[in-house]
Every structure is written in C-alpha cells, then in structure tokens.
Amino acid sequence: NITNLCPFDEVFNATRFASVYAWNRKRISNCVADYSVLYNLAPFFTFKCYGVSPTKLNDLCFTNVYADSFVIRGDEVRQIAPGQTGNIADYNYKLPDDFTGCVIAWNSNKLDSKVSGNYNYLYRLFRKSNLKPFERDISTEIYQAGNKPCNGVAGFNCYFPLRSYSFRPTYGVGHQPYRVVVLSFELLHAPATVCGPKKST
C-alpha cells in the first residue's frame, strides 16, 4: 500500500533546468501520483496529453512515469509533440509517434532571462542524422558540413554543433524561455507502482 506522493514538485520547481540537447530525465515510481497538483503548480502555457485524457490521469496506474525536463524558446514548444519536425524535434528531443503522456510548458522569462542575455541554455544546431525517439546526444564533436574532414577544428564548413540561446527579458514571447516537462507513461507487463490517489488504497 503506497502512500508517499510522487515528487513532481522537485521536477517542476527545480531551480535550474537542463539545456534541451542534454535534457534531464527523472524516473518516478512507487508513489501516489496526484496530477491535479500539477494544474495548480504554475499558470501553464501548455498542458497537452496524448493517448490519455488529462482529467482521467488520477484514475490510472502505470509501471513507471518518466519526467523529462529542459528549456526551449516559446515558438519551439509546438515541436514537443508526436510527429513534429524542426531543429528541436530533429536534433535535441524527439517524441515517438505513439507517445503516451503529457507535455507541460510554461513561460520562464522571469527566471531564465537576463538583461545582458542568459547564454547558459544550449541547443544542438547541427547533426548528421535525426534523433530516434527519446535519444539523447550530448556530443560536442565538430560538425563537418563540407567534404573536407574537420579534424576537430572549427572553421570553414566545420561547425561547433551547439548554439546558445541568449534569453533577454525584452524579447518577444516566441523568443522567451519556456520550461518544459514531458511526462511519459510506461505500461509494462509488470506491477503498477505509480497510481492516482483513488487507485492507491
């Protein structure tokens, strides 16, 4: 009989979030998941669920729940959905087409922007091929755009693959930082360890 609440607040209220290319994953298990708490945590810009209804979450049980978190800019949030393409979905964080879970995003301009520009958040701009779903690539190998090998040196047709967002508070919403948490629900042929409040007794 599990009584402890799932530590969603640790994920959502973390002081620092990860850069999207090096997104963070927390496995959540053996706890009571009260998803209604999430609705009250922040004024969400996005709370979209796929393959599951957000209002039914509190009635369900899962084997595992994974919470992935990272920062992107406002106009990239739409890429965090099944079947999307674009720089983020292709080279940084890719959801599977049959994704079961929820994408939660909110504006973090007050936390993640600086007047002089916050350069701490990076994204991958160049990659030889698209990522597979939930693949994480943290390599910093020089990207070869031409025929000549780069031998690890940046220059003509040889690019450092990561680029930094420079978040400034005066930017338009599309270029402001957004914190994203992706909850993916895993149903294996194994005992369910993460249940809503109704199912945990």
Rank of each mutant, 00 (worst) to 15 (best):
N1M: 06
N1Q: 09
N1F: 03
I2G: 13
T3C: 03
T3K: 10
N4T: 12
N4C: 08
N4Y: 08
L5I: 11
L5Q: 11
F8P: 03
D9R: 09
D9Q: 12
D9M: 12
V11L: 10
V11N: 03
N13H: 08
N13Y: 07
A14F: 03
A14G: 06
T15C: 01
T15F: 02
T15L: 07
T15G: 05
R16I: 10
R16W: 08
F17K: 02
F17G: 05
A18L: 02
S19G: 04
S19C: 05
V20P: 08
Y21M: 04
A22V: 03
A22W: 03
N24R: 15
R25H: 04
K26S: 08
R27N: 14
R27D: 08
I28E: 01
I28F: 15
S29G: 09
S29F: 08
N30F: 05
N30C: 06
N30H: 10
C31V: 05
A33F: 15
D34V: 03
Y35I: 13
Y35V: 11
S36A: 10
L38P: 03
L38W: 06
N40S: 12
N40M: 08
A42S: 08
A42Y: 10
A42Q: 13
P43T: 08
P43W: 04
P43R: 09
F44Q: 15
F44R: 15
F44K: 15
F44H: 15
F44S: 15
F45N: 15
T46P: 03
T46R: 12
T46Y: 15
T46V: 13
T46S: 14
T46A: 10
K48L: 05
K48T: 08
C49V: 00
C49G: 00
C49F: 00
Y50F: 09
Y50N: 01
G51D: 02
G51N: 08
G51E: 02
V52N: 04
S53M: 10
S53F: 07
S53C: 07
P54R: 14
P54G: 09
K56Q: 13
L57Y: 05
L57W: 06
L57H: 04
N58I: 05
N58K: 13
D59R: 10
D59V: 06
L60N: 08
C61D: 09
F62N: 07
T63K: 14
V65C: 12
V65Y: 02
V65T: 05
A67K: 01
A67E: 02
D68H: 03
D68L: 01
D68M: 02
D68T: 02
D68G: 01
S69Y: 05
F70R: 01
V71K: 01
I72C: 06
R73K: 11
G74W: 01
G74Y: 03
G74T: 01
D75K: 08
D75F: 05
E76A: 02
E76V: 00
E76T: 01
E76N: 02
E76R: 01
V77G: 02
V77I: 10
V77K: 02
R78P: 14
R78S: 15
Q79C: 02
Q79T: 03
Q79N: 04
Q79L: 01
Q79A: 04
Q79R: 02
I80N: 03
I80P: 02
I80H: 02
A81Y: 00
A81K: 05
P82S: 01
P82T: 03
G83T: 05
Q84G: 12
Q84I: 07
Q84D: 02
T85A: 09
T85R: 14
G86W: 04
N87H: 15
N87D: 09
N87V: 15
N87F: 11
I88T: 03
A89H: 02
A89Y: 00
D90V: 01
D90F: 03
D90R: 09
D90A: 08
Y91P: 03
Y91W: 07
Y91F: 13
N92E: 04
N92F: 02
N92W: 02
Y93V: 01
K94F: 00
L95G: 00
P96Q: 00
D97W: 07
D98N: 14
D98P: 06
D98C: 05
D98G: 07
F99S: 00
F99R: 00
T100F: 15
T100K: 11
T100E: 07
G101Q: 00
C102H: 00
C102G: 00
C102E: 00
V103L: 01
V103M: 00
V103R: 00
I104V: 10
I104T: 01
A105G: 03
A105H: 07
W106G: 01
W106R: 01
N107H: 04
N107R: 05
S108Q: 06
S108E: 06
S108Y: 03
S108H: 04
S108V: 05
N109S: 13
K110L: 08
K110V: 09
L111C: 08
L111Y: 11
L111M: 13
D112Y: 00
S113C: 08
S113Y: 07
V115F: 11
V115M: 12
V115Q: 15
S116N: 15
S116I: 10
S116W: 10
S116E: 14
G117Q: 11
G117E: 11
N118T: 12
Y119A: 15
Y119F: 13
N120Y: 08
N120V: 11
Y121P: 05
Y121D: 04
L122A: 15
L122Y: 15
L125Q: 15
F126A: 13
F126K: 12
F126L: 10
R127P: 03
K128N: 11
K128Y: 08
K128T: 12
S129Y: 08
S129L: 07
S129F: 08
N130E: 11
N130K: 15
N130S: 12
N130Q: 13
N130H: 13
P133D: 06
P133R: 01
F134D: 06
F134G: 13
E135S: 05
E135V: 04
E135K: 02
E135N: 05
D137A: 02
D137Q: 01
D137Y: 00
I138C: 12
I138K: 09
I138W: 04
S139M: 04
T140E: 13
T140Q: 11
T140W: 06
T140D: 09
E141Y: 06
E141L: 07
I142Q: 06
Y143F: 13
Y143A: 06
Q144I: 04
Q144D: 07
A145T: 09
A145M: 12
G146L: 04
N147T: 14
N147H: 13
N147D: 14
P149R: 11
P149Q: 12
C150D: 05
C150W: 02
N151V: 08
N151R: 12
N151A: 12
G152I: 05
G152R: 08
V153K: 14
V153S: 15
V153I: 13
G155E: 09
G155T: 10
G155F: 06
F156K: 15
N157G: 14
C158W: 02
Y159W: 12
Y159Q: 11
Y159R: 10
F160S: 13
F160N: 14
P161W: 01
P161H: 01
S164L: 07
S164A: 13
S164G: 10
Y165K: 05
Y165C: 03
S166Q: 14
S166T: 14
S166C: 09
S166R: 13
S166H: 13
F167P: 06
P169R: 09
P169V: 02
P169T: 09
T170K: 11
Y171P: 11
Y171L: 15
Y171E: 15
G172N: 15
V173T: 13
V173N: 12
G174V: 08
H175V: 07
H175K: 14
Q176L: 02
Q176P: 03
Q176S: 05
P177C: 02
P177W: 04
P177A: 08
P177G: 02
Y178E: 03
Y178G: 01
R179S: 02
V180I: 08
V180W: 01
V180P: 00
V180Q: 00
V181R: 00
V181D: 01
V181Y: 03
V182S: 00
V182G: 00
V182W: 00
L183P: 00
L183E: 00
L183Y: 00
S184H: 13
S184D: 03
S184C: 13
L187C: 11
L187M: 14
L187T: 14
L188I: 13
L188E: 14
L188V: 13
H189A: 15
A190I: 09
P191C: 08
P191Y: 07
A192G: 14
T193W: 09
T193E: 13
T193M: 11
V194T: 10
V194E: 11
C195N: 08
G196C: 09
P197G: 13
P197C: 15
K198H: 14
K198G: 15
K198C: 11
K199S: 15
K199Q: 14
K199P: 12
